[in-house]
Amino acid sequence: MQTNDTDLLFQTNSDLEFSSARQKKLKAAEKLGNPFRISSKVLDLVIEGDEAWVAESGWQIRRVDLNSFTTKKLYKGHSGPVTSVVLYDTPGGLRVLSGSWDKTIRIWDIKTAQVLHILKGHTDFVKSLLILPLPRPLLLSTSSDRSLRLWDLSPLQENNPPICIQTIREHTRPVESSTYRIFTDESGQRTEVYIWTSDSLGVMKEWELKDDQLVFRRDIKGHETSVGFILATEDGLWSASMDKSIMFHPHPPSAPLKPISILHTGYVKSLLPLPASSTSPSLLLTAGDDEDLHVFPLDDVLEGQTPKPILVPGHCAEVSVLRLWRKEGKAVILSGSLDGTIRNWSIPELLNPAPLVYEEEKETVELTEDEQRELAELMDE
């Protein structure tokens, strides 16, 4: 007979101490970041307007109204955790695309939550999805089967299933993440499209899109182990790794600037650079298995400095995703976690975070045998 009841299992003193500390933190953090609680772990999140679509470990996608933080619809049909979610617009309406441990990519009708198409081809977990909004729209999927697949999305305009037009097996380990950037000339015309992919060995590969095919350019070195998240910006390529570091590789590839690295105390799972606005400075946010959000001055990081971060507590498990939500023109940061919550933070809350406030433990006084006997005599009288 098996049980999950910890009271019936053998636990060491360290187990008991960790469990006690966890319960205290859960209590202290229960209101920080105005948490929206869901039924499973948050693995990915995409925002469109004032709504979010959440990829959950509980085999579903959740559509959330961000103004009220209420669930509007659930998209059920996967037979494993949903690792990634993206949106794609068609004449028939917005479509939700999701990748899962069940090795499939599913395309959903946003209004009815019905599955329109199931894309098969990967032989292991689908780890990430990336839409390339080019004249011919493409979908890039990455997988634990060590492959990349490029799908032509144009058939979706007629409500037909996308077609796989390229399969690449250059990585030697599961491919964890992908990102892209479109380079333009002074007139704004597209000149090049670069794509980057990363794997669980720490290898990042750079590709160029030519005639709707990915052409390998180079390997980007720097991390010692799994790179779970990468993001391309106008300035360069950001990466977050399980080697407890983030890195920044400046654009273009021939730039004389050296890569920048910042060490953390734990695995880094996500990052988010925020440009300066009229109400806030430029910031860099990172998060991972130490459960805190780390807030750095972005300009200092890009200048090669290693500033001490502001630590923002709140989550009680690994922080898996960071996203920017523009609420009425103001920046709001959403953080999703394996603790089953999505928390939202204003910039002032990140720069001046509220501390964890633990309840004071009440002291208990144990009576000696003589005191217990005297008390019993008094009670009898």
Rank of each mutant, 00 (worst) to 15 (best):
111 K>M: 05
111 K>P: 00
111 K>D: 14
111 K>I: 03
111 K>H: 08
111 K>T: 09
112 T>K: 10
112 T>S: 15
112 T>V: 03
113 A>W: 00
113 A>T: 00
113 A>F: 01
114 Q>L: 07
114 Q>W: 00
114 Q>K: 06
115 V>A: 03
115 V>F: 01
116 L>H: 03
116 L>Q: 12
116 L>P: 00
117 H>N: 10
117 H>S: 06
118 I>S: 04
118 I>M: 01
118 I>L: 02
119 L>D: 12
119 L>P: 10
119 L>R: 09
119 L>K: 05
120 K>N: 04
120 K>S: 14
120 K>V: 13
120 K>I: 05
121 G>E: 01
121 G>A: 05
121 G>P: 04
122 H>D: 14
122 H>V: 02
122 H>K: 02
122 H>S: 04
122 H>C: 06
123 T>K: 09
123 T>F: 03
123 T>C: 07
123 T>P: 00
124 D>N: 15
124 D>P: 04
124 D>S: 15
124 D>C: 07
124 D>Q: 12
124 D>K: 10
124 D>H: 14
124 D>L: 01
125 F>L: 09
125 F>G: 07
125 F>H: 13
125 F>W: 14
125 F>S: 13
125 F>K: 13
125 F>P: 04
126 V>T: 05
126 V>D: 05
126 V>P: 12
126 V>S: 04
127 K>D: 14
127 K>M: 15
127 K>A: 14
128 S>C: 15
128 S>Q: 15
128 S>P: 02
128 S>N: 15
128 S>E: 14
129 L>P: 07
129 L>F: 12
129 L>G: 11
129 L>A: 09
130 L>W: 03
130 L>N: 04
130 L>C: 12
130 L>D: 08
130 L>E: 11
131 I>C: 13
131 I>E: 11
131 I>D: 08
132 L>F: 06
132 L>T: 09
132 L>M: 13
133 P>G: 14
133 P>A: 13
133 P>V: 13
133 P>W: 14
134 L>C: 08
134 L>P: 10
134 L>V: 10
134 L>Y: 04
134 L>N: 08
134 L>K: 11
134 L>S: 09
135 P>L: 11
135 P>F: 09
135 P>D: 15
135 P>G: 08
135 P>C: 06
135 P>S: 15
135 P>N: 15
135 P>V: 12
136 R>L: 12
136 R>T: 15
136 R>Q: 14
137 P>A: 06
137 P>C: 02
137 P>Q: 05
137 P>G: 09
137 P>V: 09
137 P>D: 10
138 L>W: 01
138 L>F: 02
138 L>T: 06
138 L>H: 10
138 L>C: 10
139 L>I: 03
139 L>T: 09
139 L>P: 07
140 L>E: 10
140 L>M: 12
140 L>S: 06
141 S>Q: 13
141 S>E: 10
141 S>L: 11
141 S>T: 11
141 S>Y: 09
142 T>L: 06
142 T>H: 01
142 T>A: 12
142 T>F: 08
142 T>V: 13
143 S>F: 02
143 S>K: 00
143 S>W: 04
143 S>I: 09
143 S>Y: 00
144 S>N: 06
144 S>E: 12
144 S>P: 01
144 S>T: 00
144 S>F: 04
145 D>A: 04
145 D>K: 07
145 D>V: 05
145 D>S: 12
146 R>V: 11
146 R>S: 12
146 R>G: 01
146 R>E: 12
146 R>Q: 14
146 R>L: 04
147 S>L: 06
147 S>R: 08
147 S>H: 02
148 L>A: 07
